[in-house]
Design a binder for these strands. Structure first.
Lengths: 256, 256
DNA sequence: CGCAGTTTTGATAGCCCTCAAGGGACGTGG
DNA sequence: CCACGTCCCTTGAGGGCTATCAAAACTGCG
């Protein structure tokens, strides 16, 4: 099962570096550290658990290639995907002091993962960090700032997810989710002309958006019939972003 | 309009201190700072916006008394409450570097709020923090550790909310939510014999749990009829916590 | 060429929403 | 003391969105 032929063609595999330097400018030695960490990514099969539920000390990792997710299972087998993780995303970088029932982290596709312990240590030791109170104007620079930003982005994705699941219809949910994916993937150069790799099954999509597989399928069909999206192989194209934005009431995570 | 007669009888107003020292042991001077900050709380009317949506630099505040929420409004008026904030909870303590579309923070009841700028500064300056890599065993102490823990707890509440909204029925959602409230309120000594103040309307509850007011009402009735909860005035009693836990598939945020 | 996983389709049912209206609690004012 | 408004809770009826069950078409693959 090839990981993501399209993704590879759409961008080189330095997703983590792209992601973090989009969040905050990095010092040369920090970039070097990142390159070193991601030099030899470990291939991981689909449906592999990267972090077990309740794990006391999840190892810091970075997702270099492929998609994954944080998910939680209910006792009767129902699954809720809490957040989808994309190339360049971080896993377990927050130092936790207690084993928290966060759910597990699992790959959705074939993926490539790197250990990121040194990244956390480097950030903890501090650097160009702008820790000053700064009243909010300062952005902060350096690895620590980038990691903070990464954490805040993840919180935004969670809030988005709550709004989708709580107050939007299936149609709106899918539109909103696709727009979020587009925005996130574009920061790692995986989007061209509103087209990007889309390597997950409708079952996964359903578990992410709180729907049944059958209804997920019908909703996708509706979006296609309405000319809003187009799927070929494992890639998807958003054919009318403004319309999608309007439907989903989408307000991105822009900085202004 | 009296804020919360029951709450007052169930616990003294030093909710913030209780909350934070439950997260991590504080140094004497940190406790003193907390007492100083919360010495003169400002009364706030219900439905008051404490943080506006997209606010670049939300002022750090602590909720000393009353309930509030983070919420997001859709263009057509639909409202989703992202997370409910209880006495002792923190608001805007994370230093943000960009204006993020987080939604607004609004009081749900009459409340008492304190500015907490000094708290953030004190934590940033560092203290007894256990920043060592520690492999996960160390808990960390001091204000900074407590604030980190507070942030992680909020993330757990978000994940809980996602699971509720995505994969649970109305009945399960309410059970799950009530158990979470019980657990959170108990850390600030606002729970006695599974009974606690419950000062929000069913409309608020509906917006928190992604339901209509009518269905919210019917679900509460069902829970009462099943002998699981009991409401009198503005207080609620969980009459069968094990049953509720089973129904909701509730796994608290315990440390083991 | 059959197998397993995925997508698709049809039919039926159910959870939950919307609309509408009545009742209760509380405070205000006459 | 009672009329009256407001807010909240409650109830009824009808319908729509979405789930479930079942099975067929499709795809990639060994």
């Amino acid at each position: 099962m090839p990981a993501e032929p399209l993704a590879r063609s759409l961008g080189p595999p330095d997703a983590v570096l792209r992601r973090l330097s989009a969040y905050a400018p990095l010092a040369p030695d920090e970039e070097a550290l990142l390159r070193q960490i991601t030099a030899r990514p470990a291939p991981v099969a689909p449906r592999t658990e990267l972090v077990r539920d309740g794990d006391a000390a999840p190892r810091p990792q970075v997702l270099v290639e492929g998609w994954a997710c944080r998910q939680r299972l209910l006792a009767d087998g129902r699954r809720q995907i809490v957040v989808v993780l994309l190339p360049g995303d971080l896993i377990g970088l927050d130092r936790r002091r207690r084993p928290l029932p966060f759910g597990s982290v699992t790959t959705l596709t074939a993926a490539q993962v790197c250990e990121a312990g040194p990244l956390r240590e480097r950030a903890a030791r501090g650097g160009a960090a702008g820790d000053g109170t700064g009243a909010g104007t300062g952005e902060g620079t350096g690895l620590a700032a980038a990691l903070r930003q990464a954490r805040e982005m993840e919180e935004i994705w969670l809030v988005n997810q709550v709004v989708r699941l709580g107050r939007q219809t299936a149609y709106e949910r899918v539109a909103h989710f696709l727009l979020e994916l587009r925005e996130r993937l574009s920061t790692v150069d995986r989007v061209q002309d509103d087209r990007f790799s889309f390597p997950i099954t409708q079952e996964v999509l359903a578990d992410a958006l709180g729907l049944s597989v059958v209804h997920m399928n019908r909703t996708m069909q509706q979006l296609r019939r309405d000319g809003l999206i187009e799927q070929r192989a494992t890639a998807i194209t958003l054919r009318d972003v403004p319309a999608l934005v309007s439907i989903a009431d989408y307000a991105g995570a822009h900085g202004a």
